[in-house]
Protein backbone atom coordinates (compact mmCIF):
# COMPACT_ATOMS: atom_id res chain seq x y z
CA UNK A 1 0.00 0.00 0.00
CA UNK A 2 1.22 3.46 -0.87
CA UNK A 3 0.70 4.73 2.64
CA UNK A 4 2.62 1.90 4.28
CA UNK A 5 5.91 3.71 4.46
CA UNK A 6 4.79 7.11 3.30
CA UNK A 7 4.92 8.30 -0.27
CA UNK A 8 8.63 9.00 -0.18
CA UNK A 9 9.49 5.38 0.42
CA UNK A 10 7.34 4.33 -2.49
CA UNK A 11 9.05 6.87 -4.67
CA UNK A 12 12.56 6.01 -3.67
CA UNK A 13 11.94 2.39 -4.38
CA UNK A 14 12.37 3.13 -8.05
CA UNK A 15 13.93 6.56 -8.42
CA UNK A 16 17.59 7.11 -7.59
CA UNK A 17 18.06 10.09 -5.28
CA UNK A 18 21.39 10.85 -6.88
CA UNK A 19 22.03 13.33 -9.62
CA UNK A 20 23.18 11.39 -12.62
CA UNK A 21 26.06 12.68 -14.75
CA UNK A 22 26.93 11.14 -18.03
CA UNK A 23 30.64 11.85 -17.93
CA UNK A 24 31.17 10.88 -21.54
CA UNK A 25 29.05 13.83 -22.64
CA UNK A 26 31.31 16.67 -23.72
CA UNK A 27 29.53 19.25 -21.60
CA UNK A 28 30.64 17.33 -18.54
CA UNK A 29 34.30 16.68 -19.21
CA UNK A 30 35.22 19.89 -21.03
CA UNK A 31 34.97 22.04 -17.88
CA UNK A 32 37.23 19.56 -16.11
CA UNK A 33 39.68 19.63 -19.00
CA UNK A 34 39.70 23.43 -18.96
CA UNK A 35 40.30 23.39 -15.22
CA UNK A 36 43.33 21.22 -15.91
CA UNK A 37 44.47 23.68 -18.59
CA UNK A 38 44.22 26.53 -16.09
CA UNK A 39 46.12 24.50 -13.55
CA UNK A 40 48.96 23.71 -15.94
CA UNK A 41 49.13 27.32 -17.07
CA UNK A 42 49.64 28.22 -13.45
CA UNK A 43 52.45 25.67 -13.16
CA UNK A 44 54.10 26.90 -16.35
CA UNK A 45 53.66 30.54 -15.40
CA UNK A 46 56.14 30.08 -12.57
CA UNK A 47 58.71 29.93 -15.37
CA UNK A 48 57.53 32.74 -17.59
CA UNK A 49 54.86 35.38 -17.31
CA UNK A 50 54.22 34.91 -21.03
CA UNK A 51 51.93 32.05 -20.05
CA UNK A 52 49.63 34.52 -18.36
CA UNK A 53 49.37 36.36 -21.65
CA UNK A 54 48.61 33.04 -23.28
CA UNK A 55 45.86 32.33 -20.77
CA UNK A 56 44.09 35.65 -21.20
CA UNK A 57 44.75 35.78 -24.95
CA UNK A 58 43.57 32.24 -25.66
CA UNK A 59 40.49 32.90 -23.58
CA UNK A 60 39.65 35.98 -25.63
CA UNK A 61 40.26 34.13 -28.90
CA UNK A 62 38.29 31.08 -27.81
CA UNK A 63 35.29 33.19 -26.85
CA UNK A 64 35.32 34.81 -30.27
CA UNK A 65 35.78 31.51 -32.07
CA UNK A 66 33.09 29.84 -29.99
CA UNK A 67 30.64 32.62 -30.82
CA UNK A 68 31.36 32.17 -34.51
CA UNK A 69 30.89 28.41 -34.18
CA UNK A 70 27.52 28.90 -32.49
CA UNK A 71 26.42 31.27 -35.23
CA UNK A 72 27.24 28.59 -37.82
CA UNK A 73 25.55 25.79 -35.90
CA UNK A 74 22.05 27.13 -35.33
CA UNK A 75 22.81 28.00 -31.70
CA UNK A 76 21.86 31.50 -32.66
CA UNK A 77 18.92 33.78 -33.32
CA UNK A 78 15.86 31.70 -34.17
CA UNK A 79 14.22 31.68 -37.56
CA UNK A 80 12.53 34.97 -38.40
CA UNK A 81 8.83 35.08 -39.13
CA UNK A 82 8.45 38.64 -40.36
CA UNK A 83 10.28 41.47 -42.10
CA UNK A 84 10.94 43.19 -38.79
CA UNK A 85 12.81 40.10 -37.72
CA UNK A 86 15.20 40.57 -40.61
CA UNK A 87 15.69 44.21 -39.63
CA UNK A 88 16.36 43.28 -36.02
CA UNK A 89 18.86 40.66 -37.10
CA UNK A 90 20.48 43.21 -39.37
CA UNK A 91 20.90 45.59 -36.46
CA UNK A 92 22.19 42.74 -34.31
CA UNK A 93 24.79 41.90 -36.91
CA UNK A 94 25.77 45.56 -37.27
CA UNK A 95 26.32 45.87 -33.54
CA UNK A 96 28.11 42.52 -33.46
CA UNK A 97 30.42 43.67 -36.25
CA UNK A 98 31.25 47.02 -34.67
CA UNK A 99 31.71 45.64 -31.17
CA UNK A 100 33.87 42.83 -32.55
CA UNK A 101 36.29 45.37 -34.00
CA UNK A 102 36.54 47.06 -30.63
CA UNK A 103 36.84 43.70 -28.89
CA UNK A 104 39.70 42.44 -31.05
CA UNK A 105 41.61 45.73 -30.86
CA UNK A 106 41.39 46.03 -27.08
CA UNK A 107 42.16 42.38 -26.39
CA UNK A 108 45.06 42.41 -28.82
CA UNK A 109 46.56 45.51 -27.22
CA UNK A 110 46.11 44.03 -23.77
CA UNK A 111 47.87 40.82 -24.77
CA UNK A 112 50.59 42.76 -26.52
CA UNK A 113 51.28 44.75 -23.35
CA UNK A 114 51.65 41.48 -21.48
CA UNK A 115 54.30 40.11 -23.82
CA UNK A 116 56.03 43.38 -24.69
CA UNK A 117 59.71 43.80 -23.86
CA UNK A 118 60.15 45.63 -20.57
CA UNK A 119 61.69 49.07 -21.10
CA UNK A 120 65.46 49.31 -20.97
CA UNK A 121 66.90 49.63 -17.44
CA UNK A 122 63.46 48.68 -16.11
CA UNK A 123 62.20 52.26 -16.12
CA UNK A 124 59.13 53.14 -18.13
CA UNK A 125 58.85 56.57 -19.68
CA UNK A 126 56.66 58.60 -17.32
CA UNK A 127 53.95 59.57 -19.81
CA UNK A 128 50.98 61.15 -18.10
CA UNK A 129 48.65 61.34 -21.05
CA UNK A 130 48.13 62.69 -24.53
CA UNK A 131 45.48 65.20 -25.36
CA UNK A 132 45.23 64.35 -29.05
CA UNK A 133 44.90 60.65 -28.35
CA UNK A 134 42.15 61.27 -25.81
CA UNK A 135 40.18 63.34 -28.31
CA UNK A 136 40.69 60.72 -31.00
CA UNK A 137 39.54 57.77 -28.97
CA UNK A 138 36.55 59.68 -27.80
CA UNK A 139 35.42 60.80 -31.23
CA UNK A 140 35.85 57.50 -33.06
CA UNK A 141 33.62 55.43 -30.74
CA UNK A 142 31.24 58.38 -30.51
CA UNK A 143 30.84 58.25 -34.28
CA UNK A 144 30.10 54.51 -34.29
CA UNK A 145 27.73 54.87 -31.35
CA UNK A 146 25.88 57.62 -33.18
CA UNK A 147 25.57 55.35 -36.21
CA UNK A 148 24.10 52.62 -34.02
CA UNK A 149 21.75 55.05 -32.31
CA UNK A 150 20.36 56.44 -35.55
CA UNK A 151 20.21 53.15 -37.44
CA UNK A 152 17.83 51.61 -34.94
CA UNK A 153 15.23 54.35 -34.75
CA UNK A 154 13.01 53.37 -37.72
CA UNK A 155 12.88 49.73 -36.68
CA UNK A 156 11.92 50.66 -33.14
CA UNK A 157 9.15 52.88 -34.48
CA UNK A 158 7.84 50.06 -36.63
CA UNK A 159 7.97 47.54 -33.82
CA UNK A 160 6.36 49.49 -31.04
CA UNK A 161 4.58 52.19 -32.95
CA UNK A 162 1.19 51.63 -34.42
CA UNK A 163 1.85 52.62 -38.03
CA UNK A 164 4.70 51.58 -40.24
CA UNK A 165 5.42 54.86 -42.03
CA UNK A 166 6.95 56.90 -39.24
CA UNK A 167 10.43 56.80 -37.82
CA UNK A 168 9.12 57.87 -34.44
CA UNK A 169 6.70 55.60 -32.59
CA UNK A 170 3.13 56.80 -32.87
CA UNK A 171 0.57 56.24 -30.15
CA UNK A 172 -2.40 53.97 -30.65
CA UNK A 173 -5.59 55.47 -32.03
CA UNK A 174 -8.52 53.03 -32.07
CA UNK A 175 -10.23 55.05 -34.78
CA UNK A 176 -7.49 54.41 -37.32
CA UNK A 177 -6.76 50.81 -36.46
CA UNK A 178 -5.99 49.17 -39.79
CA UNK A 179 -5.34 45.63 -38.62
CA UNK A 180 -6.87 42.53 -40.23
CA UNK A 181 -7.42 40.54 -37.08
CA UNK A 182 -8.08 41.47 -33.47
CA UNK A 183 -6.92 39.22 -30.68
CA UNK A 184 -7.04 39.93 -26.98
CA UNK A 185 -4.39 38.02 -25.09
CA UNK A 186 -4.99 37.83 -21.36
CA UNK A 187 -2.11 36.57 -19.30
CA UNK A 188 -2.88 34.89 -16.02
CA UNK A 189 -1.01 32.63 -13.68
CA UNK A 190 -0.04 30.53 -15.71
CA UNK A 191 -1.50 30.51 -19.18
CA UNK A 192 -2.51 32.78 -22.03
CA UNK A 193 -6.20 33.11 -22.78
CA UNK A 194 -6.82 34.36 -26.31
CA UNK A 195 -10.02 35.91 -27.53
CA UNK A 196 -10.56 36.41 -31.26
CA UNK A 197 -12.95 38.87 -32.80
CA UNK A 198 -14.55 37.14 -35.74
CA UNK A 199 -12.90 38.85 -38.74
CA UNK A 200 -15.81 37.85 -40.96
CA UNK A 201 -18.02 40.14 -38.92
CA UNK A 202 -17.83 43.91 -38.61
CA UNK A 203 -14.81 45.01 -36.62
CA UNK A 204 -15.59 46.25 -33.10
CA UNK A 205 -15.90 50.02 -33.32
CA UNK A 206 -13.50 50.55 -30.46
CA UNK A 207 -10.94 47.74 -30.18
CA UNK A 208 -9.64 49.08 -26.86
CA UNK A 209 -13.09 48.86 -25.34
CA UNK A 210 -13.65 45.46 -26.90
CA UNK A 211 -10.46 44.22 -25.26
CA UNK A 212 -11.92 44.82 -21.82
CA UNK A 213 -15.54 43.91 -22.53
CA UNK A 214 -15.88 40.60 -24.37
CA UNK A 215 -18.50 40.24 -27.07
CA UNK A 216 -20.89 37.33 -27.26
CA UNK A 217 -19.53 35.95 -30.53
CA UNK A 218 -15.83 36.05 -29.62
CA UNK A 219 -13.89 32.85 -30.03
CA UNK A 220 -11.99 31.70 -26.95
CA UNK A 221 -8.80 29.65 -27.21
CA UNK A 222 -6.15 28.79 -24.65
CA UNK A 223 -2.43 29.17 -25.37
CA UNK A 224 -2.74 29.18 -29.15
CA UNK A 225 -2.26 32.22 -31.34
CA UNK A 226 -3.50 31.70 -34.88
CA UNK A 227 -3.16 34.05 -37.84
CA UNK A 228 -2.50 33.78 -41.53
CA UNK A 229 0.45 34.63 -43.70
CA UNK A 230 0.58 38.34 -44.45
CA UNK A 231 -1.86 39.34 -41.74
CA UNK A 232 -1.60 42.45 -39.65
CA UNK A 233 -2.66 41.20 -36.25
CA UNK A 234 -3.63 43.61 -33.53
CA UNK A 235 -2.81 42.08 -30.16
CA UNK A 236 -4.49 43.61 -27.15
CA UNK A 237 -2.31 42.55 -24.25
CA UNK A 238 -3.88 42.34 -20.82
CA UNK A 239 -3.32 40.57 -17.54
CA UNK A 240 -5.61 39.81 -14.67
CA UNK A 241 -3.03 39.29 -11.95
CA UNK A 242 0.69 40.07 -12.21
CA UNK A 243 3.06 41.34 -14.88
CA UNK A 244 3.62 38.84 -17.66
CA UNK A 245 5.62 39.34 -20.82
CA UNK A 246 4.37 37.98 -24.12
CA UNK A 247 7.42 36.67 -25.96
CA UNK A 248 7.49 35.09 -29.40
CA UNK A 249 11.14 34.46 -30.32
CA UNK A 250 10.49 33.90 -34.02
CA UNK A 251 8.69 37.20 -34.35
CA UNK A 252 11.26 39.15 -32.34
CA UNK A 253 8.24 40.17 -30.33
CA UNK A 254 8.22 40.87 -26.63
CA UNK A 255 5.87 43.06 -24.68
CA UNK A 256 5.05 43.15 -20.99
CA UNK A 257 1.45 42.99 -19.90
CA UNK A 258 0.66 45.46 -17.17
CA UNK A 259 -2.09 44.96 -14.63
CA UNK A 260 -4.74 47.57 -15.19
CA UNK A 261 -3.71 48.39 -18.75
CA UNK A 262 -4.50 47.21 -22.24
CA UNK A 263 -1.41 47.44 -24.40
CA UNK A 264 -2.08 47.41 -28.15
CA UNK A 265 0.65 45.84 -30.25
CA UNK A 266 0.91 45.17 -33.93
CA UNK A 267 2.18 41.80 -35.15
CA UNK A 268 3.05 41.15 -38.77
CA UNK A 269 3.02 37.55 -39.88
CA UNK A 270 5.01 37.36 -43.09
CA UNK A 271 5.80 33.68 -43.05
CA UNK A 272 3.76 30.59 -42.45
CA UNK A 273 4.95 27.79 -40.23
CA UNK A 274 2.88 25.21 -42.04
CA UNK A 275 5.26 23.31 -44.30
CA UNK A 276 4.24 22.34 -47.81
CA UNK A 277 3.64 18.77 -46.65
CA UNK A 278 1.15 20.01 -44.06
CA UNK A 279 3.40 19.50 -41.04
CA UNK A 280 3.89 22.36 -38.66
CA UNK A 281 7.11 23.95 -37.49
CA UNK A 282 6.93 24.62 -33.78
CA UNK A 283 6.82 28.34 -33.01
CA UNK A 284 6.41 28.92 -29.34
CA UNK A 285 5.17 31.60 -26.98
CA UNK A 286 6.98 32.06 -23.69
CA UNK A 287 6.63 34.34 -20.70
CA UNK A 288 9.60 36.62 -20.18
CA UNK A 289 8.73 38.31 -16.90
CA UNK A 290 8.80 36.48 -13.60
CA UNK A 291 5.17 35.75 -12.71
CA UNK A 292 5.43 33.22 -9.91
CA UNK A 293 6.59 29.68 -9.42
CA UNK A 294 5.21 28.32 -12.65
CA UNK A 295 6.57 31.21 -14.73
CA UNK A 296 8.31 28.61 -16.91
CA UNK A 297 5.03 26.87 -17.63
CA UNK A 298 3.39 29.63 -19.70
CA UNK A 299 4.05 27.89 -22.95
CA UNK A 300 1.93 28.65 -25.95
CA UNK A 301 2.23 28.15 -29.66
CA UNK A 302 1.79 30.26 -32.76
CA UNK A 303 0.24 28.92 -35.92
CA UNK A 304 0.46 31.07 -39.03
CA UNK A 305 -1.82 29.49 -41.58
CA UNK A 306 -0.82 29.66 -45.22
CA UNK A 307 -3.92 31.53 -46.33
CA UNK A 308 -6.70 33.54 -44.82
CA UNK A 309 -9.10 30.77 -45.88
CA UNK A 310 -7.18 28.21 -43.83
CA UNK A 311 -7.35 30.52 -40.86
CA UNK A 312 -11.07 31.12 -41.32
CA UNK A 313 -11.62 27.39 -41.55
CA UNK A 314 -9.76 26.89 -38.27
CA UNK A 315 -11.69 29.73 -36.68
CA UNK A 316 -15.08 28.45 -37.74
CA UNK A 317 -14.17 24.93 -36.60
CA UNK A 318 -13.16 26.30 -33.24
CA UNK A 319 -16.31 28.32 -33.06
CA UNK A 320 -18.44 25.32 -33.94
CA UNK A 321 -16.82 23.41 -31.11
CA UNK A 322 -17.36 26.31 -28.78
CA UNK A 323 -21.06 26.54 -29.58
CA UNK A 324 -21.68 22.79 -29.53
CA UNK A 325 -25.05 21.79 -28.22
CA UNK A 326 -24.13 18.14 -28.51
CA UNK A 327 -21.03 16.50 -27.16
CA UNK A 328 -19.11 15.48 -30.24
CA UNK A 329 -16.35 14.06 -28.09
CA UNK A 330 -18.72 11.54 -26.56
CA UNK A 331 -18.53 8.97 -29.32
CA UNK A 332 -15.00 9.62 -30.43
CA UNK A 333 -13.20 8.93 -27.21
CA UNK A 334 -14.11 5.40 -26.37
CA UNK A 335 -10.96 4.25 -24.63
CA UNK A 336 -10.11 1.67 -27.23
CA UNK A 337 -10.04 4.31 -29.94
CA UNK A 338 -7.51 6.52 -28.23
CA UNK A 339 -3.91 6.41 -29.41
CA UNK A 340 -2.68 5.53 -25.94
CA UNK A 341 -5.06 2.63 -25.85
CA UNK A 342 -3.24 1.01 -28.71
CA UNK A 343 -0.03 0.69 -26.77
Amino acid sequence: MLLDKGPSAAFEATEPAVLHFNWSASEHWIPLALTAVAFFTWLLATRSNKYWAALIGLNAATLAGYTAWCACNQLWLPETANDLGAEVDGLFNLVLFLTSIFYFITQAVLIYTMVQKPPANGRAKPVHGNHTLEIAWMLVPAFFLAVIAIAQLPTWAKMKGQTSDSSIPVGYDPATDSSDLLVTVTGKQWEWRMRYADPAKAKPTNPLLWASTPAADDVHVVNELHAWQGAKVRLMLRTTDVIHSFFMPQFRFKQDMLPGKTIPALLRTDKTNINSDGTERCWEIACAELCGGNHYRMRGKVVVHATREDFMRWLSETKTKQTARKDSLAAATKPSDTPAGKE
Binding site: F92, I148, Q152, R252, F253, A288
Partner: peptide
Protein backbone atom coordinates in the same frame (compact mmCIF):
# COMPACT_ATOMS: atom_id res chain seq x y z
CA UNK B 1 25.42 48.01 -26.45
CA UNK B 2 23.31 45.16 -27.80
CA UNK B 3 20.71 45.87 -25.17
CA UNK B 4 20.83 49.59 -25.76
CA UNK B 5 19.75 48.94 -29.34
CA UNK B 6 16.05 48.89 -28.64
CA UNK B 7 14.89 46.53 -31.43
CA UNK B 8 17.61 44.02 -30.53
CA UNK B 9 16.64 44.42 -26.89
CA UNK B 10 13.19 43.17 -27.80
CA UNK B 11 14.74 39.80 -28.51
CA UNK B 12 17.24 39.62 -25.67
CA UNK B 13 15.39 41.48 -22.93
Amino acid sequence: IFMAVTPVDVQIH
